[in-house]
Amino acid sequence: MATNAVARKGIKRQIKLPNREAFKIALRSLKIRFWRSCVTMAGIVLAIAFLSSVMISGLATASLRPPDVGPGATVSEDRATQVWLICISLVVCTVGITNAMLMSVTERYREIGTMKCLGALDWFVVKLFLIEAAFQGLVGSMLGGLAGFIVAVLAAMTQYENVLGNLPWGTAFGQLGIAVLIGTGLSIVGAIYPARRAGRMPPADAMRTEI
């Protein structure tokens, strides 16, 4: 085995985790903790639903009401409050994701350690957790965007006629797209710290039986 040369230079560096495999592993980790993922996702759904409903109802009202109607001061104050509320809801949602991912990391200590014993590099683990977070963020914010859209349109319908006919659909979809991007982005941002923590975990922890 070792007779062929003092194989000191036999050590190489190349270790791989192809994207396809990474996606497969990450999605299955989500699937096996389906309800937990749903709870994490619920936070994103709510925050993005709020964001998109505000966006869409703004659009719907603007399309139906001439801009000069109503005292300007009240409108901009309303706007400021809305932006403030949206920001808070997004921050709360991000913190919620961080918390949920930290729990997920703790729960999977041994699994992560095992992967590292099998040769996984720190960033493999980071990648897996970020893919999970991105997926949760994407699905959650698409659901949330849709829910917010429906709520906003229904609310507008109670006040105005022909809301759907007047809605600028192109802009509406554009704004929904932005909402989904924000949701996915925040989900990833919230997962960065837990993912890095998981990545730095020493492989020796996999050997320990009492965790």
Binding site: I11, K12, R13, Q14, I15, K116, C117, G119
Partner: peptide
């Protein structure tokens, strides 16, 4: 990287 390779 080399350690990961070794473990692998």
């Amino acid at each position: 990287y080399e350690l990961a390779w070794l473990r692998c």
